[in-house]
Design a protein around this nucleic acid. Structure first.
Lengths: 346, 346
DNA sequence: CGTGACCGTTGACACGTGTCACCGCGCTCC
DNA sequence: GGAGCGCGGTGACACGTGTCAACGGTCACG
């Protein structure tokens, strides 16, 4: 403090530590308020020459506003929490990547929050803690939260950027729409006997049971007999045994909704080995949208997220939370359509 | 402010807004400093009864410290930036999930940062911006950064939690160790003619070229002829054509390092269709560790990250950055071993 | 000439936290 | 009986930002 301020202005550290807005103000010869206003877009209220000086000083110092300072005064951060369900969607990486890229362009950073074992209540509590701590600008839910959870979080002032899930009868978990879509697809293809294939030896997954329950609901709605549940191990012999038992019990044709693409491929391979026609004798639909499923013959029918639609919807959610409208809003993107069918061949 | 403070203490909002440490102090009848000290572990310096009162008050109010406030005063946040390379590692989701879970237990949140098109310099600049803004507690690199990038970031006071990549001769990109491991595996298996299979029609990927260059280096070191580069489309017919051309040019046997598991499976299927023995006439190794590769016969040799080792190493890095030692440090986890071979059958 | 409006700019406050230095008190020891 | 010491606890500051209210000056208008 005994140092001449002029010295500080004469020797602007070009890259060393994080320059503050006070440094910018000093270098530009204005007050810190002015810097803050100009750098936040209040340009019209200042002389053009001042705006130039401030911007130049900021650029010269490599000034980057501190997220901590901003969050503190604004009461919310520039973070978006991405809630990822504990499911095996093969292209989850692509989805996260696309969302992160889009939000990055908008100036947000993405904090990932994965569901973990311990039940829905524990996961909500963990998410709650993160929200309380980080005060994020919003939450994007990939199907991990129930409608009630979403409402709870929104009530606490944390906007939900993702669309409300398509309503599923009897349940409120968004990702269960996957199971409904699977069942409806198989029924559309003419299968009147359905089965649900679990992945044997998978980590504790209350999820699978709920999906199977949704398939049962759809069958009941359509007046079809209740689906059979089978467990499929991820090896050729085991899968054949499981499928063989199913065919003996239910006869042909049978449509099998699988808990993921790996199970779907195992079932599909097993059917071919058993000389069953796919599709025809056996209908198969997976979940995940993995590229391998599209590599084999016949291509595996599978369900995945529509990355483009979800990104567009989230972009719209961000704009709404900001109180504006997205510049490049694409009205053809329905906020309801999140799931998409790939390779409708099995 | 005209309100009696007693009133505030009598009506503690149980869940409504984010209670501050001042609220806790008021309710417990102590100063804010005391609350801060006790809640940060300075327990021995206070009377047991006071500690109890403070903790009770904090619990009753559902107090959660503000990340913004902490970050501001500490100069660093409780965020960890995870730099994800633009590669098709099938199990990247698992890796992210495992790392996020582990860091979550340690009290950190994970901000994902994906490589995007635009080149290494642009990606580094984006990462730099995030680091300047967020002041993260550390960076975990999954192979996106060069050694020089890592040094640059560490110099700026942002510790690198992930291990320095195994040194690869002539290059400094960590993920290129993948290509070296692939090549060495094929050579170990007795193949003296090598090829590198690109994914045709993939997004612009300077990555693939560099991997192929590493394979060429390994061949040169081992005194083998330079590898052939082929492009493999993800359909059965196209893959067969590509493989057929290769076999005609190079003869048998040939070991093929593939840019990912999908290419590996395509090559493997094509070889079987061409009545070539796998392994034997054709050796195949992919990248990604996808479960489908382990489902088919023969199981695909593939390279993936050792999730357990990487998590252990990162945990150690966190402890080191904190200036302590991880409680449950497992000394059997070498910080060098990140890559692991799965299903060594093709 | 007085009053009001407008322009460009600024001072001051609040946000919530961690921590350094300090304070009072009761006890012990010479 | 006074000095010293440890215990238990606290006041005050700093961190970096956004924004409200207010400032001085100039110009137009009555």
């Amino acid at each position: 403090m005994s140092q001449d301020p002029e010295d500080v202005a004469v020797l602007p550290p070009p890259r060393r530590p994080g320059a503050t807005s006070a440094d910018v103000a000093r270098l530009a010869g204005v007050s810190r308020s002015t810097v803050s206003h100009i750098l936040n877009g209040q340009v019209t209220r200042f002389a053009e020459e001042t705006v130039g000086r401030v911007r130049d000083a900021a650029a010269r110092l490599g000034y980057v506003p501190s997220a901590a300072g901003r969050s503190l005064v604004l009461g919310r951060s520039d973070l978006v929490v991405l809630a990822v369900p504990n499911t095996t969607l093969t292209n989850v990486q692509d989805i996260i990547e696309a969302i992160a890229a889009d939000l990055d362009d908008l100036g947000y950073s993405v904090v990932v929050h994965f569901d973990r074992g311990g039940g829905a209540a524990a996961n909500l509590a963990r998410l709650q803690h993160v929200v309380d701590t980080l005060r994020p600008a919003g939450i994007v839910d990939l199907g991990s939260l129930s409608l009630r959870d979403l409402d709870t979080l929104e009530e606490q002032g944390c906007p939900i950027l993702s669309p409300r899930p398509r309503h599923v009868r009897g349940v409120d978990e968004g990702n269960l729409a996957i199971a409904r879509t699977q069942a409806e697809h198989l029924i559309d293809r003419g299968y009147t006997a359905l089965a649900y294939a679990f992945l044997v030896d998978h980590r504790d997954d209350p999820f699978g049971r709920m999906r199977a329950a949704v398939v049962a609901d759809v069958c009941a709605e359509a007046g079809l007999p209740a689906p059979t549940a089978i467990s499929v191990p991820l090896d050729a012999a085991g899968a054949q045994t499981a499928l063989c038992d199913l065919l003996r019990a239910r006869g042909r044709p049978v449509g099998i909704a699988c808990s993921n693409d790996e199970v779907g491929l195992a079932v599909s391979f097993a059917a071919l080995a058993l000389r069953a026609a796919v599709p025809g004798d056996v209908g198969v639909i997976g979940v995940g949208g993995g590229s391998v499923g599209q590599l084999v013959a016949p291509r595996l029918s599978t369900i995945t997220f529509d990355v483009r639609a979800s990104v567009g919807t989230i972009r719209r959610g961000v704009a709404a939370a900001r109180g504006g409208v997205a510049e490049d809003d694409d009205p053809t993107l329905s906020p309801e359509i999140f799931l998409v069918l790939q390779g409708e061949t099995t």
